[in-house]
Amino acid sequence: MDHASRLERILRGIAIAAMVLFFMFPIFWILLMSFQTNETILRNPPSMAFAPTLSNYAALLTGRLDTAAGTLDIDFMQNLKNSVILSVFSVAVALLLGVPAAYAFARHKFRGSEDIAFTLLSFRFAPPLLVVLPLALYFQDIGLADTYIGLIWVYQLICLPLILWIVRGYFEDISPDVEYAYRIAGHSWFATFRRIALPLAGPGIAAAGLLAFIFAWNNFVFALVLGSADKQPVTVGALAFVTASGIQYGQIAAAVVLSIAPTLALAIYAQRYLVEGLSLGAVKG
């Protein structure tokens, strides 16, 4: 019997409100900051009242940053473009490689398969700095330093294990009998993979791709070390606002808003995939 008392319901409401406030407040504050000048931001005590300005966004779009010390050229839009290119292609490559690999790990248990899968996952545990310095040296030698391909390659360290492990779970949840039934009906293993396994794991693949995209988008260290200014994503680009004449909080806030907007939109859009993916188990068989 789950008759919660009135008091219980009220307490639960308060707890949820507190949680939401705690997690949402920084985002809300950043949004406010992005419409303010540095002066109003640095007021003491801080206040919610200010005259909103679009100057921060204008500066980012035009690439000209006017500060007290003079005018500075920044290429934020190029950073944004880099982020999109790096994230999209990294996820695409990771899906292309990771989904078939996940299927293989899910369906064919061979000697050492578990070890290989775990080794791949362990790449996620290593601190990025551990691999990034040797990689920087290698990349110099083989000419991959400061190229999109080099970065996309390194980004596989982030995306591939994620996709492999999430999608493998989804493939394992599909009853092998369903695939056997399709094969016995006269279809090749590849047709079975394409028409049965892929569609049934579809929501899971979408969810994994999305997570990988967000992780790739938020990456900082690899791009900082392995890319130069014209290949760097927004996360690194935001550093440019730490200028000799002070930190440009207003522009940073605007840059943050612009850079989280795509991932936020994607996450909201993909929520239904995540839910669908989780309820897939209920229709098995």
Partner: peptide
């Protein structure tokens, strides 16, 4: 061959 499974194994999609 044709086969029917105990858990039916229909293609859910």
């Amino acid at each position: 061959v044709g086969m029917a499974f105990q858990n039916f194994a229909l293609f859910p999609h």
